[in-house]
Amino acid sequence: MTVLAVTEQRRGELRDPSFELITAGRQLADDLDSELHLAVIGGDVDGYADQLNREGVDAIHTVADGEEFNHDIYTQAVTAMADAHEPDAVLMANTVNGLDFAPAVAGQLDVPLVTDAVDFDASGTPEITREQYGGKVETTVDIEADQFALTIRPAEWAKAEGTGDADIAAFDFDLDESAVRSTVTGFEEVGSGDVDISEADILVSVGRGIEEEDNLPLVEELADALGATLSSSRPIVDNGWLPKNRQVGQSGKVVTPDVYIAIGISGAVQHVAGMKGSDTIVAINTDPNAPIMDIADYAIVDDLFDVVPELIEEFGGEAS
């Protein structure tokens, strides 16, 4: 009986979710009364295996094929490991690369997949807790299968600590090169430019609640009046209203200002990933149930078009 957790690396480093997978994997293994095995695939696998040898890990299987993540190699290797070790569960992370290989692994193994778990209890029939409708509701789903695949939401479980005494061994695996039909040719850092929002002490951050590009001057004036820097959620950048270097979140910048004022931002998980480390979070939102309220220190439940002009006036600015 095993749980097989698939770790992730990129450009010479293990990703944080790899260590979170150990914590969640141990929890799942305890529920299922089984061992926790890790899969380490690509790059400096021996070095990674040493770092991953933390408390709670029973065995680590390495596959050295590929320098960087490639979903074809990951899918083949994990499927082969699962065939060899017959795990009760294959655990992966709901990262961008997790989105790229977890459904394929589940398909290859012909097992059900549940993604983006925020909690689970597998002591009986595995029950997975996940969010729906942008975090406004939670659901539980039961998995009625002997074997299943699960992905966990990043940053929901703590990173595993301690030193383990896992057996580390190269997994006997022959890659079928002809089935590798995608090639990673490089990486590029995007979103740099003249402004670095991660340096700012105060961020006035604007979301889809602003409705139209023509309304942006309102928050620009507030930022000016406060001596703050303007940042935004993703849709504002997707729409081309602000440049990419203003985007806060998973695929934008991680910011930790003294004060983060979220204006018309719902607080989706990918946004929160970029700003939850702010000292003080203030939310201005018409929806009292918006997920941003869960992490806000102060909130105004009101229309931004009423509140922001008043605020500008408070600081001697003029709302147009």
């Binding site: 939670e138 539980t140 039961d142 869960d294 992490i295 909130a299």
Partner: peptide, 16 residues
């Protein structure tokens, strides 16, 4: 093999 068993409003974690 996946069955939706409940939907509920999460308890607010907000101490705002």
């Amino acid at each position: 093999q996946v069955e939706l068993t409940s939907m509920y409003e999460p308890e607010s974690e907000s101490d705002a």
